[in-house]
Every structure is written in C-alpha cells, then in structure tokens.
Amino acid sequence: MLLRLAYLRVTNAFAVLRWHRDLVRRRHAAQSKPKRPGRPRTLHDLRRLNVRLAQRTR
C-alpha cells in the first residue's frame, strides 16, 4: 500500500493544476473552432424565396 501511494505522489499540486488548465484550454479551443470553413449555408426555404423574388423582379 505504501508503494502505491508513493507511486501516485510523483508530481505536485501545481503540475496537476497546470495540466488541468491546459486540458480545459485545449477543449475550449476545439469546441469554439468553426465546423467548416467559409460562409454558412443558407436554408433551403430562404434559397427558394430568393429565387422567387428574383424571378418576380425581372
């Protein structure tokens, strides 16, 4: 049992906190990254409305 506790105490509290901050930072950066590059897609209904308005104004 003592050997197991000594094995777990390889690092200090500051290292654990730094590891946690880095983990949270990487996770937040990955989640806030845009899913696909470029302009967002338009909805099909809006696309049909634009076509209909364009045909009306000719």
Rank of each mutant, 00 (worst) to 15 (best):
R27Y: 06
Q31P: 01
L2C: 05
L5S: 10
D22I: 07
A30E: 11
D45F: 09
T11N: 03
K33N: 00
H28K: 14
A30K: 09
D22R: 15
A54M: 04
L3N: 11
R27G: 06
A13T: 08
A6E: 11
N50Q: 09
R21K: 03
T42F: 10
R58T: 06
T11Y: 02
V10F: 05
H44P: 08
R26F: 03
F14K: 14
P40C: 03
R39F: 04
A13D: 05
A54G: 07
N12W: 00
V24I: 15
H44V: 05
A6V: 10
Q31R: 15
R26Q: 14
L46I: 10
T57S: 07
R36T: 03
L53M: 07
D45M: 12
N12M: 01
L53D: 01
A54E: 13
K35V: 12
T11A: 08
T57P: 00
H20S: 06
R25S: 11
Q31F: 12
L49V: 05
L17V: 09
L2K: 13
N12Q: 02
L53Q: 09
H20W: 12
A15D: 04
A54T: 10
T57Y: 08
G38Y: 05
K35N: 03
V10A: 15
S32M: 14
D45W: 06
F14V: 03
W19N: 12
H20K: 13
R4N: 06
A30T: 00
H44F: 11
V51K: 12
G38F: 02
L3R: 15
R18I: 00
A30M: 07
A15G: 12
H28S: 14
L3C: 02
A30P: 00
N12S: 03
R26K: 15
H44Y: 07
R26N: 03
R26I: 00
N12D: 13
